[in-house]
Amino acid sequence: MAPLPLPPAWTGPLPEAAPPGDMALYRLPTGTYETRAAFAFKGGSFGDRRRFAATAVLVRHPGGDLLIDAGFGSRVEQHIRSLPSYERSPYEPADSARTQLDAGGYDRADLRGVLVTHAHWDHVSGLDDLRVPVLINAGELEYAGGHRGGRVFRDVAGEHKITEYRFDGPPYLGFPASFDVYGDGSVVVVPAPGHTTGSVVVFVALPTGARYAFVGDLTWQLDGIRRRAERPLMMRMLADVDPARVRADLLRVVALADVMHIVPAHDVTAYDGIPLLTD
């Protein structure tokens, strides 16, 4: 199948960032579930079974640590049972983010909150085990409060403090606005509505010079970046509130692929190179 048009590669300077020297990034894989590649991206094979990651990412920062998404929680079986039958897949749970934090000797008092890329079940199930604030924008809060895709969020987030942020910063890497979490350019959130009403991309700059784009579900697999392949039509209709916006933002990210690590939330291999907290 023909790929999406090739966007011009990003050739300008990257935005300035001054991450503190002791800032670090860790992955907390909380499990996987199985989906056929044919359902994940246009041109994927029906015989190609993919393990979709459910992984939280810990950002350690002296201004207060963050998790990007929460992965599977201790009640994931119940959360999956609450889904329509066509959304359920074989899955393999691993330790929750909370269990991994505790096993790594992490002081959860250092955790400022969980920044969700969007409110779907496989990104928020683990909130159930973490009594910390949820960082979310107004568009996603509206989606989570009323859309069928937010039902697990409504179940797990009831006891959490909701910290609402705004995109009051300047354009960032082709996106129209931004929110600088720490004010130093190390973690910058941009709006990428389309998959959900308020879904986002989270850019992270490390003191090593490495740059990451955690793109949530703009694409489910790195094939979407490498092949410039959006979701198949049926999955766009089922999964996205605005497929045209997803397509436009996917191409924005494709343009950045040569200058940073792109991490689709559900591609197991995209987390390679990010250390485990318990290593």
Rank of each mutant, 00 (worst) to 15 (best):
Trp10Lys: 02
Leu25Trp: 00
Val187His: 02
Asp223Glu: 14
Arg154Glu: 11
Trp220Gln: 11
Ala119Gly: 13
Val201Met: 04
Leu28Arg: 01
Pro15Asp: 00
Gly43Ile: 06
Phe39Glu: 15
Met234Arg: 05
Pro15Thr: 00
Gly71Ala: 02
Ala9Asp: 12
Gly146Asn: 13
Val241His: 01
Gly43Trp: 07
Ser74Thr: 15
Ser186Gln: 05
Ala24Tyr: 02
Val132Met: 05
Val57Gln: 06
Thr278Phe: 06
Ala192Cys: 07
Trp220Leu: 14
Val134Tyr: 02
Met237Ala: 14
Asp267Leu: 11
Tyr212Lys: 09
Arg98Gly: 09
Arg148Asp: 15
Thr197Ile: 04
Arg112Tyr: 06
Pro20Thr: 04
Asp22Met: 06
Ala257Thr: 14
Ala24Asn: 08
Gly104Arg: 01
Gly185Asp: 04
Phe153Trp: 15
Val268Arg: 05
Asp69Ile: 01
Asp223Cys: 08
Thr30Leu: 00
Glu230Tyr: 07
Thr269Ile: 07
Ser178Pro: 02
Leu66Ala: 06
Ala244Pro: 09
Ile136Asn: 07
Gly169His: 08
Asp279Ser: 14
Ala103Met: 09
Tyr33His: 11
Gly105Cys: 05
Arg131Glu: 13
Glu92Ile: 03
Asp242Ala: 14
Asp249Ser: 10
Leu276Tyr: 12
Gly113Trp: 04
Ala103Ile: 07
Ala205Cys: 08
Asp48Tyr: 05
Val132Arg: 09
Thr32Glu: 04
Asp242Asn: 14
Gly224Glu: 05
Leu58Ala: 04
Arg88Gln: 14
Val204Asn: 00
Leu141Trp: 10
Asp184Gln: 02
Leu67Val: 08
Tyr172Phe: 15
Gly209Asn: 04
Leu130Asn: 11
Tyr182Ser: 12
Phe39Leu: 12
Asp272Gln: 12
Asp258His: 08
Leu111Phe: 04
Phe39Lys: 09
Val189Leu: 11
Leu256Phe: 04
Val76Ser: 06
Ala17Gln: 03
Arg252Lys: 15
His160Gln: 13
Asp168Gln: 09
His147Met: 09
Leu28Gln: 07
Arg151His: 15
Leu173Gln: 04
Ala53Trp: 02
Trp121Tyr: 15
Ala97Cys: 09
His61Asp: 06
Val181Gly: 03
Pro15Leu: 03
Met23Pro: 00
Gly198Asp: 06
Ile262Glu: 02
Glu140Pro: 10
Ala177Gly: 00
